[in-house]
Simulated scan of single mutants.
Amino acid sequence: MVVRQAVAALALGTALQAAPARADEGFPFGLEMTLDVARQPGSKRVPTLEIDDSGEVILELWCKGGKGQFSVAGNTVIFVAGPLQDRACPPARAQADDELVAALSEAATWKRQGDFVSFIGTKLLRFRINTN
């Protein structure tokens, strides 16, 4: 009887410890994420996404900025970009911004591993969740 209670207590404790890990694996609504890439030469910026609880996203790219919307069902994701503000970007940065938005729009699935979220489509985009 004592052994059975000890095993049950251990199983319950393990389950409770595992629960937060599963919760952390959900889509990062309400959080800001930074693209996991090096800075472009001559720029201090790295693209970020700030996704609110309803899926609306604020995009701050290498040069441009704007809004969009994420819809998530299971591991499926749909991203629709809104209009982007052209901030007199140099051509190379403007093109990189457009390519990033296109890659996000082509993403069909997503996965989360700890503090990293990947959007998977024709191109893999990996973002780090800002925890500070």
Results as ranks from 00 to 15, higher is better:
G30H: 12
P47H: 08
R126I: 14
D97T: 07
L100E: 00
F79D: 00
E106W: 12
Q40L: 08
Q85W: 01
W62K: 08
S118D: 10
A107K: 06
E25N: 13
G114C: 04
G121Q: 01
C89F: 03
S118C: 03
A19H: 05
T76V: 15
V57W: 00
C63R: 02
L35Q: 01
W110F: 09
A38G: 06
V37W: 07
V117N: 00
W62S: 02
L124M: 07
C89S: 03
V72E: 02
R87G: 06
D36H: 10
D98G: 01
G13T: 05
L12H: 13
E50D: 10
L84P: 01
V2Q: 11
A103K: 04
L59Q: 10
A73N: 10
G82I: 05
A108G: 15
P83R: 04
L35V: 03
F27T: 07
Q40K: 14
R39V: 12
P41D: 03
A15Q: 09
K64E: 00
A81S: 02
L12I: 14
P91A: 04
L59M: 11
E56W: 00
V46H: 04
V3P: 08
P20N: 04
D24W: 12
G68E: 08
T34A: 13
I51E: 06
G42F: 10
R45L: 13
I51A: 13
T131N: 09
L12A: 12
A107L: 08
R22A: 15
A19P: 04
L16C: 04
G68F: 01
Q85T: 11
D97M: 07
R45A: 14
A18F: 06
K123Y: 05
V117G: 06
G121D: 01
K67D: 04
Q113D: 12
V3L: 14
P83L: 02
L125G: 03
M33P: 01
A88K: 11
W62F: 12
T76G: 14
G74Y: 10
A92Y: 00
V7A: 15
R39D: 10
A9F: 09
Q69V: 06
F116Y: 13
G55C: 09
A103T: 07
D53K: 15
A15K: 09
V117D: 09
A81Q: 00
P20Y: 05
V101K: 03
D86K: 05
Q40D: 06
P91K: 08
D86V: 05
G121S: 01
L49H: 14
A88V: 10
P83V: 02
V77D: 03
S71T: 12
L10E: 15
L16H: 06
S105E: 14
R4V: 15
D52Q: 08
R4H: 12
D98C: 05
E32R: 06
E25K: 12
A96N: 07
A73D: 14
G114P: 11
C89H: 04
R126D: 04
D24A: 10
G65H: 13
N132E: 14
